[in-house]
Design a protein around this nucleic acid. Structure first.
Lengths: 201, 201
DNA sequence: CGTTTTATCTTGACAGTGTCAACATAGCCT
DNA sequence: AGGCTATGTTGACACTGTCAAGATAAAACG
């Protein structure tokens, strides 16, 4: 399957494209991602990808979908560590979130950036994977509210939007190199966690 | 100056380009902004803009610089309303920030997006205008810490990064249409403000 | 005033891009 | 064997940003 002989038909062009695109994305960014180059790298003609993806953003959606799937698993794994205190898990989640974004900036940018979300560019497949991720954020928020880590006089959805917004915003400031450098990631995470949980001097 | 006669020389092409670009930006987004179209709209040939801007991102930087300048003024105006309580000003700032982003999504995206900040694309002129804006965020944070609105056991810079990150993140979630719709802006702003200031039930 | 320098604008060209239409081949199903 | 469908191909179009070389107007200078 992977080592398909070089014949008229590629064998598994769809997977090959996603794989190559993911690699190129991480290395050179979403802007330098051209369907033509990908096709050439896969040893296939310019328009071959169109038999597997409606257009460019469908390819990007597929990549992002994989990212959401992975991210969802990671979040769940942290959240469900029942041997740790809720507080510890919350802190870990914050660090993990920002860490993921900092370590995979281009992937994060793709997943949570406007490229695939604006103009209804997001595939239904993508939405099916992404929405449960968003919902999970609410689930976690409600749990942390129950544990009195987060204020429980706030609507869970709003609070989830705000807490996630914070992580998202810090991630983006870091990724885009605005006003924050990667040398102080841990400090920023701790500051954010302190702010949310009510531990104050 | 504005109504230059149609001659070989345009008269004030630089301003005309910035103006047209700003208008087109607000209306159709940064992606549909092409130097060629702008030139055509200005009644000038494709390459004329290159005598006023090194390249496309220099034009974008110029537009963003204007945005930062305006934004800085607005922030200052709110912050310096001494007849209002610090708490009221803080709340107003939060609403104003998110409101600006929601009302001018494309401009916000340009100013705080990766388009002009990645790859050292930002002009020195832009940095000169933007950095004081960033610094002002720290100044305000320190003030609010002094007034005991924000926790003063945190480093002002970190806290500024986190609070601004929150606003930035919420703004982006809204703009990009992820997980948040514009119908609940005020609720989200209040939730964020409540969370930062220590008013909890 | 004339001349020269400089700022500005022009056409021509190049290498890219995404995407459509029309055609070719290979594999599978009946 | 014949045909349908999935997949791949070449050709073409309309865009894009940007460079090089030449034209023209305005300003600077003698």
């Amino acid at each position: 399957m992977a080592n398909a002989v070089q014949s008229y038909h590629h064998g598994d062009l769809r997977s090959a494209l996603i794989e190559a695109a993911t690699a190129r994305l991480s290395e050179h960014g979403v802007d330098s991602l051209s369907l033509r180059k990908l096709a050439e790298d896969a040893g296939v003609s310019r328009t071959a990808p169109y038999h597997h993806f409606k257009d460019k953003s469908a390819l990007l959606s597929a990549i992002a979908a994989k990212g959401f799937s992975d991210w969802h698993s990671a979040a769940k794994r942290i959240f469900e560590q029942e041997e740790k205190t809720p507080s510890a898990r919350f802190r870990e989640f914050v660090h993990e979130y920002i860490g993921y974004a900092a370590d995979n900036p281009e992937m994060y940018e793709l997943m949570f950036g406007r490229t695939i979300w604006q103009n209804q560019a997001a595939t239904n497949d993508l939405k099916d994977v992404a929405f449960p991720c968003f919902q999970f954020q609410v689930t976690m928020t409600r749990y942390w509210q129950d544990k009195e880590l987060l204020p429980n006089n706030q609507d869970a959805l709003r609070l989830a939007q705000v807490t996630w917004g914070t992580l998202h915003g810090i991630a983006r400031l870091l990724i885009d190199g605005i006003y924050a450098d990667s040398g102080h990631i841990d400090e920023m995470c701790n500051c954010a966690a302190d702010l949310f949980m009510q531990k104050r001097g």
